[in-house]
Simulated scan of single mutants.
Amino acid sequence: MSLPADTEADDVDKDLYDQPLHPSDPGALSKAEITWRGRQKWLEQHGYMLRPRYHQSWRPSWKDSKKSFYDCEDGVSIWHGSIIDATRTSDGSLVVLKEIKKSRHPHEADIGLFFSAEPLASDPKNHCVPILEVLQVPDDEDLIVFVMPFLRAYRSPIFDTFGEAVAYFKQVFEGLQFMHVHHVAHRDCDGRNIMMDGVHLYPHGFHPMSAQMKPDLSGFAKHYSRTERPVKYYFIDFGISRRYSPDNEAPREPQILGGDQSVPEFRDSDEPMDPFPTDVYYLGNMIREDFINAKYGFEFMGPLVSDMVQDDPIKRPNMDEVVTRFENIQKSLNSWKLRSRVVERDAAPILNLYRFLVHWRRRINY
Rank of each mutant, 00 (worst) to 15 (best):
K98I: 02
L143V: 12
D139R: 06
D140W: 04
P124D: 14
Y154S: 05
N126M: 12
D140H: 06
P149N: 06
L132C: 10
I144W: 01
F150A: 13
P124L: 10
R155N: 15
S122H: 10
F115G: 09
V134M: 08
K125V: 03
S122V: 11
R152I: 05
L151D: 03
D85R: 03
T87F: 03
P157K: 03
Q136I: 03
I100C: 10
D140S: 10
A86F: 01
M148Q: 12
G81E: 10
H107N: 15
D140Y: 04
H107Q: 15
L132S: 02
E141S: 08
I83A: 06
P157D: 08
D91Q: 06
P130I: 02
D85F: 04
R152Q: 09
F146K: 03
S90M: 06
D139T: 08
L151H: 05
D110T: 13
D139M: 03
A153G: 08
L120F: 11
S82G: 13
T89R: 10
P124C: 15
V137G: 00
F115M: 13
V137S: 00
E141Q: 07
H127E: 05
Q136E: 11
R155G: 09
P106V: 08
N126E: 11
V129T: 12
V96S: 13
G112E: 02
D85E: 11
I100Q: 01
I158A: 10
I144N: 00
P124Q: 15
Q136D: 12
P138M: 00
G92D: 07
L151M: 10
R152L: 14
S156Y: 02
V145S: 01
E133F: 00
D123K: 08
F114G: 12
I84N: 05
E133D: 15
L113V: 15
D140M: 04
V96N: 04
T161V: 07
E108P: 07
I131C: 07
A121Y: 09
S93M: 02
E133N: 11
D123H: 14
N126D: 12
R104E: 15
M148P: 09
E108F: 06
E118R: 13
R104I: 14
